[in-house]
Each structure stands twice: as structure tokens, then as C-alpha cells.
Simulated scan of single mutants.
Amino acid sequence: MTISRFIASAVLLLASASLHAFEFKTVGANAVILYDAPSTKGGRLFVAPRGMPVQVVLSYGEWVKVRDASGDMAWTEARSLSAKRNVVVRSASARVRATADEHAPVVMTADKGVLFELVDPQPGPWIRVRHRDGIIGYVRPADIWGV
């Protein structure tokens, strides 16, 4: 293969990879064990609590390799994940606003690690979320992880 064909192939591969959106899921109703390999015989890394958002990186049969908010990667069974979307606060204190406006009243301030349900998954300058207490509002994408 010539160098120019190799470079062209690499560019096409990278371009097609960038077209795919990230796939996020949520740990289902029960906490799950995350493994270092796609098997229950693999080493147990940690337990992911119910509701934790994860990014699906790779699927392998009935297993998926996932990334958490801290960037750690592990394997879990695909059936243990839910299509429901949650996000987690990654900033020290995220302001949840009544409307999608920087000057809107703050309805809640959330500490790092607080989970929200994703109400509207459309990307934009604001993300609509719901807290488990029923509070609905808008946060900046930079303050959360999982979108």
C-alpha cells in the first residue's frame, strides 16, 4: 500500500468515526459490578451504583466496555444498563436555572456528583434536567457529564 493510500484510508476512518455520536446509558435498577474483561471471570474493578451514567465505548457480544465520568473504563453486561439517560454534575456547584438563560432565577445549586435525569437530550447551550426531588431546570453542558 502506498503512503498516499494509507493516509487517505486513515483520514476516511477518522472522518467516519467523528460522525458517530457518543452513546450514553445508565446503570439500571440494580448496582452492577464492573470488570476488567468481558466476563464474570474477569477481575472486579468496582461497583457502579444504580442510576450512574456511563458512555458505551465498545460492544462485544452481550458485554459493553464503558467509560465513567472520571474517565475510567471497564466492562459490564449490556443487559444491566438502561436506555434512560442520567447525567452527573462534574463542577463544584452547578446552578440549575428556571429557564435556559444565564439571568434566569436559580432553582437549585447542585454539588459535584449529584445525579439528574436528562429531560431533553438535544445538545445546545443549555441542557434540561430533572432532580429526583422533582425540580426541573436548565444547566450548562460544561457543568455536567453524560451528554
Rank of each mutant, 00 (worst) to 15 (best):
A110M: 11
G113Y: 09
L34N: 06
A83D: 15
N86Y: 10
A37G: 12
K25I: 01
S39E: 13
P141H: 05
R50T: 15
S70I: 06
I127D: 00
V27K: 01
K25F: 02
V54D: 12
R97S: 06
E23L: 10
Y35F: 14
V88T: 14
W75I: 04
P121G: 04
R140S: 14
V64P: 00
A98V: 09
A17E: 11
S82E: 13
I127W: 00
Y35I: 03
D143G: 03
Y138R: 01
A29M: 10
I135D: 01
D143C: 02
G42A: 13
K41A: 14
A37P: 02
V32M: 10
I136M: 11
T40C: 01
S70C: 04
W145N: 12
V106C: 04
A98Q: 13
P53T: 07
S39N: 11
V89Q: 05
K41G: 13
D133G: 00
P105I: 03
G51T: 09
D68A: 05
W126H: 04
F24M: 10
V11G: 00
F116S: 02
E23S: 10
P123F: 08
D143H: 09
L19Y: 11
S93R: 09
R140E: 12
R50V: 07
L19T: 11
K25T: 07
I135F: 00
S16L: 08
R50S: 15
